[in-house]
Amino acid sequence: MLSSAKAKMVARMIARAAKDIEPGMVVNLGIGLPTQVIEHLPADIPICLHSENGITGIGSALSMDKADRNLIDAGGAYVSPVPGTCYMDSSVSFALVRGGRLDMTMLGAFEVAMNGDLANWKIPGRFTPGAGGGMELAQKAKKVIVLTMHQDRKGRSKIVRKCTLPITAYGCVSRIFTDMAVLDVTPDGLVLREMAKGLSVDEIVKATDAPLIIPANDMPFF
């Protein structure tokens, strides 16, 4: 369990990430932290959520007593339809991904490298469940955003110079939201864009394995 202070930081990260979803987008929210973004989207924002098990137009999650046994997202959560929902087979669902119709995906991470490499599917010897649709999402969505805790449970930075774990897709990530910071992947390296309330630039730099570029302007807080 996260401490309540940490939980609040995570909630702020998720709320902040939701603001990057623009009207008109087709968006896939990965399992874990990204799925929670849906709860922070204003109901009146016109967007289309996709899940790779074959649905476009996803509403909020449903409790088990209200669930339709045939209506889940790719993470197995029971979800509700919206007016205009469409169901499709797995081939069509991934044509949408690989064919360039997915504007954004938000994914979890084990490690993200400063060049945008993403590792989120395999920890050799410990966790090998298979990549599911993760490689196609990471490789083909127009914009790949990562939501992750800044450090793992042992306090090691998940934002690294170079990934040590098996890669999901190379150079795919453009922006990283963590409980501590908002980071952009640029040709020059990782740029610190925003930081969590109550933190200093030094604290973020110390918590990060990869070098950070710190712009000269005042750093916004989230």
Binding site: S90, F94, A95, R98, T128, G130, A131, G133, M135, E136
Partner: peptide
């Protein structure tokens, strides 16, 4: 996962949309 790790079954993983295709 246990059966795979202990070698009792062989598992071939495939990206999801590629399996579909």
């Amino acid at each position: 996962v246990d059966l795979m790790n202990s070698g009792k079954i062989e598992v071939e993983f495939c990206p999801q949309g590629i399996l579909a295709e």
